[in-house]
Design a protein around this nucleic acid. Structure first.
Lengths: 241, 241
DNA sequence: GTTGACTCTTACGTTACGTCAGCCTTTACA
DNA sequence: TGTAAAGGCTGACGTAACGTAAGAGTCAAC
């Protein structure tokens, strides 16, 4: 079979077949004297395999390794690929959440002054208070409120400082020393106004991303801060388990 | 502020700033005599915007349009971007489903002979029969079974022919004439063994992808056939509403 | 023999930077 | 003030997986 036919059968372009030939990924079984590529039935089966892995998101390079080494650990490759895909999906979900939030707010702009960006973090008018009560009980919330009132704006400002610090390091890997140091301060701070087990701390991090209202507010200190904090808090919990 | 500082503050690399300058996406407010880039606070705000849209998955080209045309319809752009992201997520979900299915089967190979690929479509040993009963009622299922028994292998073969035909055109757009013609035959066929409203038909298509057992079996005729059929059936229903 | 359908190779374009390489400026310290 | 470290600049190639011509040869049919 010549290129056009194979292309029609498999749904790829002729150029793609040329490309795979160049890469050594799929060499035609035969070549005529004038250089025409002639594919065999086996070639077709190979192509099927290639397209299968391609559909799973593997790169051509990876596919070549997988298919050329018969001893290659395919299951392992599939497993790591699966993880990658899940990660990609989380990222996509983050993006979708952000974009829908932006649309809901009816504007495509993020013109925030420094003031705007750093205000709105007043726990004394906590929109999540009811939720917090449901989740951690009235006692804990009341105690936290009392402490916050007691210290007033001072705690506020302290918290803002920590948030700003976190925003500064949010581009670093979540397990970097700086990140862990900053998130540690956050843990310390939380424990000055309440009592958080290390598990509760990690759970709080998950919520930052799971609940878009948290995400939105936290990201006011910097895009991506919420998901960074989740990762860092997760890591912190892991290290201090 | 010079490049390094801006880079540290924003979390992008110096190279990225150079790149944005080249593209005309973010020109520094000032340039020293020797050619050093000097960024202003406004530049920083612009960069924030750029990074915001970038985080939403827009291309730099799109971002440039959005930010340079103050009259640009941002909401519209956000909306279409949202759709794109959702589409991407569906694709990712498909990939994840397929890869997990493959792992579950404990093999990374798709070595199927033509026979293997095209068998296993025996409705008389229907693994989904109970589900079908739950969904469409005993009467309909019994009737279908009776008809299938009545005509035996003939219907089987007819169905296989249709599947093969669908597999052949599955790389074409789902609203192409060939695709719609083939899916129409499928609709005709289904109505020779039962009665399917056009809505039920579309719903069936959704199930092909939603339920991995269907997906797996259908994709035996060709990778991606199930999701192609869903799209084509959706389109068919739309056109014949 | 001519025409139309195929095929081949070569090579640039795409996206968003990463990564040198070679060279110039500015800053800090002795 | 001399020198070295730190920072800055401009090329320019590399990446992934083909799409898209361009120019030219081949094959089958009328």
């Amino acid at each position: 079979m010549k290129v056009k036919e194979v292309a029609a059968l498999s749904g790829v372009s002729v150029r793609t077949l040329h490309h795979y030939d160049e890469l050594g990924l799929l060499k035609p079984a035969e070549t005529t004297e004038v250089g025409y590529r002639v594919y065999s039935d086996e070639n077709l089966a190979e192509l099927q395999q290639i397209l299968f892995y391609r559909a799973l998101g593997f790169s051509l390079k990876q596919i070549k390794e997988i298919l050329s080494n018969p001893s290659f650990n395919r299951l392992e490759a599939l497993e790591s690929q699966r993880q990658m895909l899940h990660q990609k999906r989380s990222q996509l979900d983050d993006m979708i959440r952000t974009i829908e939030q932006t649309i809901k707010e009816g504007k495509g702009e993020v013109t925030m002054t420094r003031e705007e960006r750093f205000k709105g973090f007043d726990f004394s008018e906590n929109p999540y208070e009811q939720e917090a009560r449901d989740r951690w009980g009235d006692g804990a919330v009341d105690e936290t409120n009392k402490k916050l009132q007691q210290f007033g704006g001072e705690q506020q400002e302290k918290m803002n400082v920590i948030y700003r610090r976190l925003a500064e390091v949010r581009h670093l890997p979540s397990n970097s020393e700086e990140a862990q140091q900053a998130i540690g301060e956050w843990y310390q701070f939380l424990n000055t106004i309440g009592t958080y087990s290390i598990e509760a701390f990690a759970g709080l991090g998950e919520m930052y991303v799971a609940d878009e209202r948290f995400t939105t507010n936290i990201d006011k200190f910097g895009i991506g801060l919420a998901s960074f904090m989740r990762d860092a808090m997760r890591e912190y919990a892991r290290q201090n388990n």
